[in-house]
Design a binder for these strands. Structure first.
Length: 303
DNA sequence: AGAGTAGCCTGTAAGC
DNA sequence: TGCTTACAGGCTACTC
């Protein structure tokens, strides 16, 4: 699922491939009624026509394309959305929802099995990006920043990490990975973390995201024989990332922890799955004078 | 107001 | 074998 590293990978690809290109035609599938937000697909397509792509950026999981004339084309991939760059006339991918022809004989295609993806065309991106928390890969994201965010919340720390208003760009996969690097159980109340745990979590978030970025994203979904990923991240060329090879907990239920060998467990948080090592990420922090809590620490069964 | 959850969406896989 | 059900999770909308 596209999170910060996957969206940033796509933004970097786009900067190389389509910067300076002009959109000469835009088409949106009729059976994707939720794709275009805030205006009709008709004025969306008409508004894109003739616009030059002047810059490509990212905020949280939103992809931002600055066009000439003060317009912004904003794209959110949600669950299964992929943007793929092809030559005109190349065979269409399954689940093609929109097509954007460029002035060099190529086209951008939005491919989205689940139809959760969304796009905006606007002269003011601020309302779309309102309520987004700080960027975790920004230099300003310090232990103090994270501590202030967590202190206000009693929800499970993982729920807070995934809350885009608290922190922008983290989803289910990188939240699990960051919490494992930090040695913090995902269901701990956010405001119960010690200062040392908050510091480790800040570093774990940065580590998980930077590793995902270095590996061009995580592609954990099912791919069919045509090398087209149906439900997961591919880059602008349609190729999967490599970070799935390096994940420490996500999708590794029942397999040995890379640190201690304990079997990775899976639990539920709302209707989302949570992956963690019960030994490296104890639910209760052992503290002096609370012997009964220590006795209740999770068992550590090695395989 | 924060926490928790149903629903959107569709293909895959498990279960009967 | 074929049908039904659960699951995956980005987000919003809704309730408590």
């Amino acid at each position: 699922m596209p999170e910060l590293p996957e969206v940033e990978t796509l933004a970097r690809d786009l900067r190389v491939a389509v910067l300076g290109r002009t959109i000469i035609d835009a088409w949106v599938a009729r059976d994707a009624p939720r794709l275009v937000q805030g205006r009709s697909p008709r004025t969306f397509s008409a508004g894109l026509r003739g616009r030059r792509i002047e810059d490509v950026g990212r905020r949280g999981k939103f992809l931002l394309l600055r066009l000439d004339g003060g317009l912004w084309w904003i794209i959110h991939r949600r669950m299964s959305g992929n943007l793929i760059h092809r030559r005109e006339g190349d065979p269409d991918e399954p689940y093609l929802r929109a097509r954007f022809r460029l002035d060099d004989g190529t086209e951008l295609r939005f491919v989205d099995l689940r139809k959760f993806g969304a796009m905006w065309l606007t002269d003011d991106p601020a309302p779309v990006l309102a309520n987004l928390g700080p960027e975790p890969l920004d230099g300003a994201f310090t232990v103090e920043t994270l501590a202030a965010i967590l202190a206000k919340r009693s929800a499970p720390v993982k729920a807070v990490l995934m809350d885009q208003r608290a922190l922008a760009g983290i989803g289910n996969l990188y939240a699990d990975e960051a919490l494992h690097y930090a040695g913090v159980h995902p269901l701990r109340p956010a405001n119960a973390l010690t200062r040392a745990e908050v510091a480790r979590l800040r570093d774990g978030i940065v580590r998980a995201l930077e590793q995902g970025l270095a590996n061009l994203g995580s592609s954990v979904g099912v791919t069919n024989g045509e090398a087209i990923s149906l439900r997961d991240h591919v880059n602008l060329s349609g190729e999967p990332g490599a970070n799935q090879e390096y994940l420490v907990v996500y999708g590794r239920e029942g397999r040995p922890c890379r640190t201690c060998g304990t079997r990775i467990e899976r639990a539920k948080l709302g209707n989302r799955s949570v992956h963690f090592c019960p030994k490296c990420q104890p639910l209760r922090t052992p503290r002096a004078g609370t012997g009964h809590l220590q006795a209740a620490r999770p068992r550590t069964k090695r395989r």
